[in-house]
Design a protein around this nucleic acid. Structure first.
Length: 244
RNA sequence: GUUACUGCUUAUGC
């Protein structure tokens, strides 16, 4: 049963709902843990309606079942449906509050997000990052900057959200300042800055950043390739292409 | 017991 649940989760993450369902069907007894795995599987890979149907069949849904459903509505761009799930939850914790916050923040409902943020019983770094990214994604750069400076702590995600937002909107001077202040970086950080350079025509800077990277991946290659190709530097584009 | 929350970093397709 141990292994069965592990397997279900693996299939779920690979998007193979039929295989996950096959195991679930054979599984006895089906505890809430197992139900939650198959629910999360449908939330990730199938329609909301199917997920909701499944949720209704869970004999004893727990906090995780409720939060999984909430998260599905949040990710599918239905903040109001998410709110109604949230209101019907028999209990809530930090994660469910953060999920509700994300439902608003990721769907450009920043006033509502801020209201949730201010009224939640506790705020952790995920809460701060969620609101920060809401501002970042929706182009509220000054709110983002203010929040960034008001946060109690920053982690790699806080820094990268901010960098990415500046780079996406072509504020390359500020993006570089953030980049240079970062205590740590990863591939997402590199690629976010690289993409800003490439997108806004700074191909020389893009190439020199690219050459200095400790490692590259398929995304870095694609970013620089597209940058060269779209600016008509076909010889350099071909050079990258041949290396892929 | 990686069962639920924050990075949508590229392109293509739709």
């Amino acid at each position: 049963a141990f292994i069965a649940k592990k397997l279900m989760n693996m299939y779920s993450r690979c998007g193979n709902t039929p295989k996950a369902m096959e195991i679930f069907t054979c599984l006895h007894p089906k505890d809430t843990f197992a139900w939650n795995i198959i629910l999360a599987c449908h939330c990730r890979n199938n329609s909301l309606d199917e997920a909701y149907e499944l949720f209704q069949q869970i004999p004893a849904p727990d906090l995780i079942s409720w939060t999984t459903l909430l998260s599905a509505y949040a990710h599918c761009g239905h903040p109001d449906a998410a709110k109604s799930v949230f209101d019907r939850m028999p209990l809530r914790n930090e994660v469910s509050w953060n999920t509700m916050l994300a439902a608003y923040a990721n769907n450009d409902r920043l006033e509502d997000a801020k209201r949730v943020f201010d009224s939640m019983p506790g705020r952790n770094l995920v809460s701060w990052n969620t609101l920060l990214d809401g501002y970042a994604q929706n182009g509220h750069i000054s709110c983002m900057t203010a929040l960034f400076h008001g946060m109690p702590q920053h982690d790699l995600i806080s820094w990268t959200c901010t960098l990415s937002s500046l780079a996406q909107t072509g504020r390359m001077e500020e993006a570089v300042l953030v980049y240079e202040s970062m205590p740590e970086r990863d591939m997402i950080t590199f690629n976010a800055l690289l993409d800003g350079y490439a997108k806004y025509g700074h191909l020389v800077q893009a190439k020199s950043l690219f050459d200095s990277l400790p490692e590259t991946n398929l995304i870095s290659m694609t970013v620089i390739l597209v940058g060269f190709a779209q600016s008509g530097r076909m010889r350099q584009a071909k050079e990258i292409f041949d290396r892929m």
